[in-house]
Amino acid sequence: MASRGVAGRGIDWVNVVLGAFVVLFFIFMLAPILVVVVVSFTSAGYVTFPVPGWSLKWFGHIFAYQPFVDALIVSIEVAIGATVLSCLLGVPACLYLARSRAAWASAVMTFLLSPLSMPMIVIGFASLFFLSWLGIGVSFNALLITHTIVCLPYVIRTSAGVYAGLPPAYEEAAAILGANPLKVFWHVTLPLIRPGIMAGSLFSFLTSFDNLPISYFFGSARTNTLPVVMLSYMENQFDPSIAALSTLQLVMAVAALIVVDRIYGIDKMTVAA
């Protein structure tokens, strides 16, 4: 396959042009990310690029600014809570949906994944009114519920993907040997689909952690998430502390990607995406 078109011509110009285009593409993709990483280590008191010198002061600054610290804690709590809720709701659903051949099962699957396709600002705006009517307006629980709506599809998609690829033979063997359904689930199914659950949980965590259009509507001194605080900070100030915070988040996300790759494989993720 690699030798096609090369024969007798020396240089394959299509390949060269395509390759150059791909390099330009990745410069475009990486430039806005890399400049932020660089700026987070600046010694300047304002945003400038290239940076005049290096320093870690902006990382110190973000931890000295109380709203960032408070919001970081809220964000982590919401992301963990929404992920746990998503697993509790999503994994049982997968157990049935991934194996069922019924027509309605695929319709239910589509329904469970549909929050991914809806504009988040609409979900946030509509939820605020409904949850206020229920008496849980602007609160931590409201964040938990609304984040679970958009986290659930990630857990379901990856868990169902892994479970659908498993032959039922293992579970049948356990059942024949006398294990009741609960035991089969706990000792056979769960360990086998754990990679899917873990990968879905990581996507879910990152999705919740990065969410702004929903969290925005539930913001208050005690329920502001990190992106909400960052947005209001950016509307008034333009300094490198946002870069430092972003770099920290990036380190977290890359670590998560490496974990996902180890237990799940990147190629499977692209299939799931």
């Binding site: 990310i33 890399l34 990065d210 947005l231 333009f238 770099t247 988040q249 996300a253």
Partner: peptide, 22 residues
Amino acid sequence: IFLLIAPLLTSIIMRTFGWQVL
């Protein structure tokens, strides 16, 4: 594939900020 997926995991605020820096 890694370079395609890695930006998907950065926060949207970071990428927006990146354009502001540029």
